[in-house]
């Protein structure tokens, strides 16, 4: 049997635009609402969505950090403590909310995301940069690790003092191999994309279905509703 019949993961069933909208809702809530309850409820909703997509660990992690930040902030304001800075805590809890759906966005298969993004009014080139950045992000992190190891072997990172005495050298050692390596990979990837017709003028469809389905409608309606309610709270 073909894999088409195979049980699909839930994340494969959602449209990229839905997640974008979720992110947008999260942004609006985080910046408009002044009530902790409204903010908290919406965060909990996003937490549930992440869990439903099987990202239990990450969802729980985010939610715990969120709660800790809020509780701590309350304690600080009550007892007039300012270390760690209350600004930091409020930023954590404010920014964590939009970061959660953004994480979901990064989890969508890139081909599917491309298909969804194609239906949005973003210039192709700008969109391509975004997609390729998503593709490069894990690779670059890996390369960073390699360069750091090489610096360790060479003794460039022997001690904090050593780094602080030559900060510019250290920076140079980190940047130079990264740039060489990344440019090489960028070229190879470009070559590989070109020989597979990335520049062809055809109208492009996708392997993935990009259709707003019942599930999407449900998520959109509930999320928008929740966002409005939470803002009014």
């Amino acid at each position: 049997m073909m894999t088409g019949e195979k049980k699909q993961r839930r994340i494969d069933r959602i449209d990229g635009r839905t997640v974008l909208l979720l992110t947008l809702c999260a942004c609006i809530v985080t910046f408009i609402t002044t009530s902790f309850w409204g903010h908290g409820i919406f965060t909990f909703w996003i937490f549930l969505i992440l869990c439903w997509f099987g990202l239990y660990k990450q969802a729980l992690g985010c939610f715990v950090v969120y709660l800790v930040a809020i509780v701590w902030l309350m304690i600080e304001t009550k007892y007039q403590i300012s270390i760690p800075s209350p600004l930091l805590l409020s930023m954590i809890y404010k920014l964590l909310l939009p970061a959660m759906p953004a994480y979901l966005l990064a989890k969508i298969p890139s081909g599917k995301l491309t298909a969804s993004l194609r239906k949005m009014p973003i210039p192709t080139r700008i969109m391509l940069v975004l997609i390729v950045m998503l593709r490069f992000a894990p690779t670059v992190l890996h390369e960073f690790g390699e360069v750091r190891e090489a610096m360790k072997i060479r003794g460039f990172l022997k001690s904090v003092g050593n780094v602080l005495r030559h900060p510019m050298d250290t920076l140079e050692y980190a940047i130079v191999p990264m740039v060489f390596r990344s440019l090489k990979m960028a070229d190879e990837l470009a070559a590989s994309a070109i020989v597979r017709g990335i520049e062809s003028p055809y109208k492009k469809e996708s392997y993935y279905v990009s259709r707003i389905a019942a599930l999407d409608y449900f998520l959109i309606v509930v999320s928008v509703g929740a966002a409005v309610c939470c803002c009014l709270l």
């Binding site: 080139r125 391509l128 940069v129 390729v132 950045m133 593709r135 490069f136 992000a137 670059v140 992190l141 960073f144 990264m178 740039v179 990344s182 440019l183 990979m185 960028a186 070229d187 990837l189 470009a190 994309a193 070109i194 990335i198 520049e199």
Partner: peptide, 19 residues
């Protein structure tokens, strides 16, 4: 015009920058 190779270059440099 800005082509595929240029896009890859921009993306690669921006990813490092963001990291």
């Amino acid at each position: 015009k800005i082509g595929v190779r240029d896009i890859m270059t921009i993306a690669a440099m921006m990813v490092i920058n963001f990291a």
